[in-house]
Nucleic acid binder design. Structure first.
Lengths: 254, 254
DNA sequence: GAGTGGTCTAGACCACAAG
DNA sequence: TTGTGGTCTAGACCACTCT
């Protein structure tokens, strides 16, 4: 009656897919690394080349692999531009990304609260707290406050200033690959402290965005609270009719 | 050098896919209809069964077809529950959908403004304007103002009250299948009129959501401006790392 | 020129749904 | 029992990249 382990036998291509994900998560296959070709993989896993291909194409669609004719299959390497595009939703009037430049940054490390341990896992004794103001076109745009499990990011609190784009840094430095996130958006009034840092009047309307970010193994690894000014930009969302049986949750939800 | 028509020959499975989309858009294949089996389609299009299968699976992923073993392949039929889930983003504290109940509704028809014609197409002489207040758990939650090309929804202005879920109605009544939408979210202060209708104080923070909705053929068919209270609900977004070369725009953007 | 992935075909066996 | 889609295999040809 348990949900976790599939009781029914998974198709071969699913098992091959899972085995390859395990290698990427376990850093046996590292970002940028070139994989053996389809026939070699097929021999290795004991299936046909067509079956391996199906698994490879699924992983390409999930963004874990990059394939191109003539060059071969490589483990995807997240570039700063892509990473920003994937999770940063602020756009200007013409729909272009309102690229944020760092303005100020504070980073520290402290004991995790009970609430944080409940979300980030019982083994999370300390958290790294990163607070940033980022601007665009000369004006402050966003105030962000991130919390990460300190045992997953050892020494991060001494590496200020951090790169503008955080997720590629987490991947290169700590092997933390952020794959998906959920955001909860509400409208709030700026309090005095936030208003001062964002250069708006107290009581000005702001977007408050609460983000939970998950890594390759679908562990929650970042809690983020952001406040956005939306006087010159907006939070852009693309919605599509979801096919009923389609992949809703990437993996397990817990 | 033109972008529209593919100058290079498309793969067979893409051409088969496009041909099948055309049949669905042209109502040759109607929602719920059962398609011929893979071998019959293969014969009809002059390709192999494997190629047809690839096209069918792509259309299933796009949500246009539903396939199941033993039953066959049918044209997808949008149910109210799915349609609400797909585009309605408000969730309560536990992540459940904050199902909105209609509170009041006004519908009218008037000449289109120049701005509306620029967006909805030059042949859009008149627009249908639908204004609604919707509530949840006894309190007003959202004020919505929708504009649709009147020539695509003839007689709609006499059909008040309209069903709670608008898109299934548009599909059943006018053959307008909304497939995707973009939303621009900003934070604003409630003006006097909006505050009164939503039961909040003037100057309370609200989410303002501007939606553009597109049909099967990727025509812009709805402009919508909504104001949401987010004191007891939030606007929920799921973000995923997008594979660089993946399908970003469903069809052409114009 | 050698090797790669992209496309296309062909045929086999299975579980499942419907009559 | 019949027919369907789901899975798996096998082999062919092509365009492309790299050296």
């Amino acid at each position: 009656m348990e949900q976790d382990g599939p009781l029914v036998a998974q198709p071969l291509y699913r098992r091959a897919e899972a085995a390859m994900v395990a290698r990427i998560v376990g850093n046996v296959w590292t970002p940028g690394m070139r994989l053996p070709n389809e026939f070699a993989l097929a021999r290795e896993f004991g299936v046909s080349q067509g079956t391996i291909r199906k698994a490879l194409m699924a992983l390409e669609e999930r963004g874990l692999l990059a394939r191109s004719p003539g060059r071969g299959t490589t483990v995807a390497r997240t570039t700063p531009a892509e990473a920003l595009f994937a999770f940063f939703r602020l756009r200007d009037g013409e729909g272009r990304m309102a690229t944020p430049e760092p303005v100020e940054e504070h980073i520290s490390r402290r004991a995790a609260t009970d609430a944080e341990r409940a979300e980030l896992g019982a083994d999370c004794a300390e958290v790294c707290v990163l607070e940033r103001v980022r601007g665009h076109a000369g004006a402050p745009l966003a105030l962000e406050r991130m919390r990460l499990p300190a045992h997953l990011t050892p020494g991060m609190e001494r590496e200020t200033p951090l790169p503008n784009s955080l997720y590629p840094y987490l991947q290169d430095r700590f092997g933390l690959a952020i794959m998906r996130a959920t955001e909860a958006v509400t409208a709030v009034l700026a309090d005095a402290a936030t208003a001062r840092r964002l250069g708006v009047a107290e009581g000005a309307p702001l977007l408050r965005v609460e983000r939970r970010a998950f890594d390759l193994a679908d562990r929650l690894v970042e809690l983020r609270e952001s406040f956005y000014r939306t006087d010159s930009a907006h939070y852009a969302v693309d919605l599509a009719r979801t096919p009923p049986g389609a992949a809703t949750a990437p993996l397990q939800s817990r």
